[in-house]
Design a protein around this nucleic acid. Sequence first.
DNA 1: TATATCAGTATACTTTAGTATAGTAGTATA
DNA 2: TATACTACTATACTAAAGTATACTGATATA
Lengths: 131, 131
Amino acid sequence: MIQLHDVKHCSSDYVIAVRDTLNVISGKWKLPIIGSLLYGKKRFKELERDLGKITPRMLSKELKELELNSIIKRSVYDTTPVTVEYELTPSGESIRAVLDVMVSWGLQHRQAVMKPEPMKPDPMSISANKA
Amino acid sequence: MIQLHDVKHCSSDYVIAVRDTLNVISGKWKLPIIGSLLYGKKRFKELERDLGKITPRMLSKELKELELNSIIKRSVYDTTPVTVEYELTPSGESIRAVLDVMVSWGLQHRQAVMKPEPMKPDPMSISANKA
DNA sequence: TATATCAGTATACTTTAGTATAGTAGTATA
DNA sequence: TATACTACTATACTAAAGTATACTGATATA
């Protein structure tokens, strides 16, 4: 099993692994969809209502992509009318840990940017000069 | 200080905090730029050579955005010709922890998808039927 | 004088992501 | 008969992201 320490020394493999994760959650709608499904399985129309302004075209496209990436599972039941349920796979559930870390960093960073430590004026920082 | 547990019960605040983080690293070049700067401060041309196929227009644009987001710090030295150095801020450095978690998930997920557990055939999974 | 380096900018273009609007089939209800 | 529900699809569009190519001014080197 390849792990973090195996790719840490290799910038390109590291970046590839990050991008794998990034691709799963980037775009305008993937995150809200996953977020909604973290609260439990949902039908197509339920998701549509949950997400507010999404078009069925986008929802359909995103769900297909998430299914292809094994993040969600699609189940069809032959009720009338047909019922289609979407739910997170174990892999999809496990991304919650990644999101939690992103939330923590996001909140921390926001604090760091909003109220920066008052700095003592440093002449070097006003007109830096080198060599 | 707002923390993870404060937003965990609120789907929209949670998603906003994730997106704050996502915005910092998404796009084609932000990640390679941050990755390169994790190895130490670099000048414009050094980054350009490091990143291979990036155009100066994109590099300039991305660096400006990262600086605006307090991820990197730009220092100008009045040498001849002028020297401009880019380096990660403490906040920028701290994103490494987020990337590490993303790498771990990315590698795990790839394994999960590539060699899925052989499942015992389950009649329910072949033609699901509900109510 | 010609060329190269630095750190970029300007203009025009292509590609990708996302939106708007309408329509499908099958069934159920008013 | 008309409307509404399910889970979508089709076509056409706009907006955002990224690329290609050429250029800038100041200085240094051949």
